[in-house]
């Protein structure tokens, strides 16, 4: 330490050093301090994202033989309801006719079920408006009706009326056999 300096000048700003060099070291130290805080901020934010065990949530298998034509079964999947609906030929027909209607979120009925499995509709059962669970068979299109804010879905799960912006989501799933699906 500079203990022996005599006649000290307590103000560093009146000396004749090159100001650029002097400022650089302070700015660099300040930037490094910000970098330290910033570097620590990310772990502190990322910890709120889904953890390893949550991400590993199992896919589920479901036995379709329990669902009668014209009925739906609600299963819980990743904490959300999942609609598995066995559609009648009439409901399928209505859904295909809907392909030509003026749709808010255009999609053909064909694209919303697995090939050759037109009667099976698997959908995430949360309204795309604000996440309520639509009721089965409600609304003028015979699909679903959301009691919260009046969104109406058709028998393909497409939004037809009300505030919801999107069709009901189709999750990733596959047929393991004619009567068994694996969801997720």
């Amino acid at each position: 330490m500079a203990d022996t300096v005599v006649g000290a000048n307590p103000d560093p700003h009146v000396t004749g050093d090159d100001p650029d060099r002097r400022d650089f070291i302070h700015i660099a130290a300040g930037v490094a301090a910000l970098g330290l805080v910033g570097g620590l901020a990310w772990p502190f934010i990322d910890q709120m994202n889904p953890a390893g065990d949550t991400l590993a949530l199992a896919s589920i298998e479901f036995d379709l033989s329990k669902v009668e034509p014209g009925q739906q079964v609600v299963v819980k999947w990743r904490g959300k309801p999942l609609f598995v609906r066995n559609r009648t030929p009439k409901e399928i027909q209505e859904a295909i006719q809907g392909d030509h209607a003026d749709l808010r979120d255009p999609a053909t009925d064909e694209s919303r079920h697995k090939p050759g499995k037109a009667n099976w509709l698997v959908l995430v059962g949360t309204c795309t408006h604000l996440g309520c669970v639509p009721t089965f068979g409600g609304g003028e299109y015979g699909g679903w009706f959301c009691p919260c804010h009046g969104s109406v879905y058709d028998t393909s799960g497409r939004i037809r009326k009300g505030p919801a912006p999107k069709n009901l989501e189709v999750p990733t799933y596959a047929f393991l056999s004619d009567t068994k699906v694996k969801i997720g």
Binding site: P43, Q47, G52, D53
Partner: peptide
Amino acid sequence: QRIKRDVNFGWLI
């Protein structure tokens, strides 16, 4: 243990 194993950066915090 879950914090140390599964939570993102949980081991650090």
